[in-house]
Amino acid sequence: MKYICLGYIEPNKFENLSEAERNALVDACFSYDDELRKNGHFAGGEGLQGPQSAATLRWENGKVAVTDGPYAETKEQIGGILILEARDLNHAIQLMSKHPGVKAGPFEIRPAADLSGMMQESEERRG
């Protein structure tokens, strides 16, 4: 079963680390990702550029409006996502508890929704 792990980070927290600290964290994270990959748990993932790089699309007054910056101003921003292959929620929790990234900010783990039924119904409607 696939679980999407959203990794949050406080803005500037990472930047404020010393270079040695930053390197140690990055190395530990990548090394753990490799371990996940090796055992077939890493089903994909990307780090995200900072929130100032975001463009947000929104439906407003009958047309699409584009604004810069993230949708919501929160103290913690999404720093990256990881798609995890795990047997169940506790297995996913176990695997992510060992991820060194959890020291930099919280992970939110959510099961991937199975949309196949919805897609099939939609295909039938569209003929």
């Binding site: 079963m1 047997r87 169940d88 929620l89 506790n90 297995h91 099961p111």
Partner: peptide
């Protein structure tokens, strides 16, 4: 699995 047990106990997986 956690999800199966949660369903059996009518509670949420988390």
């Amino acid at each position: 699995t956690t999800e199966e047990i949660a369903r059996a106990f009518l509670t949420t997986a988390p």
